[in-house]
């Protein structure tokens, strides 16, 4: 075999594998879409589960997931972004910062069920919040924190040093420089990181299992100390422990479809936002 044939051969396989991977992805999505779309209608999205979850809708789970997203981000975004600003802009590159960085990286690789357990010990029991939206939000926030810190750090580091020196040379203080030049410039990438962490948080089951998620609630949560239903856990319940699993199977696929659409929506938004905002940020 000569060089050219070898190359053709190799490229053929590379292409084949990529096609297979895309194919698998499409198969998964297609499977969920085909099975899920049958039950999707306005009633499914807007009403409570009925008849032991074999009828009705998933409205409380959608609401619960929204609450958890908002709650976890209220906690994780300011904390994560401020931590990133501290490590990148203030703390230099000493031992302490390297230690913090190592810890955040480790934190990011801890299995989410461990976060769940920790959240239960600290928020549910320790702080006595009970199974509640606040305990679940804080646990999910902890899970999102390393991701937000890391993407924010990268975003800040990507801001050219010449912007900072340019600002200092005009008599700006460090804080002004960060607020008016560095942060706005890093914002598109920070936002992208936040949105990706939302998509991560909205799909997690393990951290909410022991901290907030309810099997079934007859009414919507009325305070941050109430339990809530949530899409990923609801899916788990429908698929494994409903009153009549066969009968609630279509509901499970519908729930999965809603969840996947939410996650994809966030990912897509992140991509579009990054493209749109970073266009204005690049010099020739």
């Amino acid at each position: 075999m000569n060089k050219r044939t070898k190359q053709k051969f190799a490229f053929f396989f590379f292409r084949l594998f990529s096609i297979i991977i895309v194919g698998i992805l499409i198969a998964i999505l297609g499977f969920i879409a085909v099975n899920g779309i049958k039950v999707i209608n306005w009633e499914f999205l807007s009403s409570m589960p009925k008849e032991g979850m074999t009828e009705g809708g998933i409205f409380p789970a959608i609401v619960g997931t929204c609450y958890l997203i908002i709650g976890s981000m209220i906690f994780a975004v300011p904390l994560g972004v401020m931590a990133a600003i501290y490590t990148v802009e203030y703390a230099g590159n000493g031992k302490f910062v390297r230690f913090i960085r190592m810890m955040t990286n480790n934190l990011a690789s801890i299995p989410s069920i461990v976060f769940g357990l920790f959240g239960m010990a600290l928020f549910v029991k320790g702080l006595n919040f009970g199974d509640s939206i606040i305990a679940g939000s804080l646990t999910l926030g902890l899970l999102a924190l390393p991701l937000i810190i890391r993407t924010s750090e990268e975003a800040l580091k990507a801001v050219p040093e010449s912007y900072r020196t340019g600002s200092y040379a005009l008599g700006a203080t460090k804080l002004q420089t960060i607020r008016k030049v560095v942060f706005p410039c890093a914002l598109p990438n920070i936002l992208t990181g936040i949105i990706l962490s939302i998509s991560r948080v909205s799909g997690e089951t393990a951290p909410i299992l022991f901290t907030v998620a309810a099997y079934f609630l007859p009414s919507l949560p009325d305070s941050i100390f109430s339990q809530a239903m949530a899409l990923p856990y609801h899916l788990y319940v429908l698929a494994t422990s409903g009153t009549d699993i066969e009968a609630s199977r279509p509901m499970a696929y519908g729930t999965a479809l809603v969840l996947v659409v939410i996650v994809l929506f966030f990912n897509l938004t992140a991509t579009l936002l990054r493209q749109k905002l970073s266009k204005n940020m690049k010099n020739k």
């Binding site: 010449s162 912007y163 020196t165 600002s167 005009l170 008599g171 203080t173 706005p184 410039c185 204005n280």
Partner: peptide
């Protein structure tokens, strides 16, 4: 004042670039 080797305007409008020093002061 200082002018650098490579032009380093901020990723802002022409107007805001010039106004920047005034605002931070």
């Amino acid at each position: 004042g200082m002018v650098f080797q490579k032009p380093n305007p901020f990723p802002k409008s022409v107007f805001e670039n010039v106004a920047y020093g005034l605002r931070v002061n």
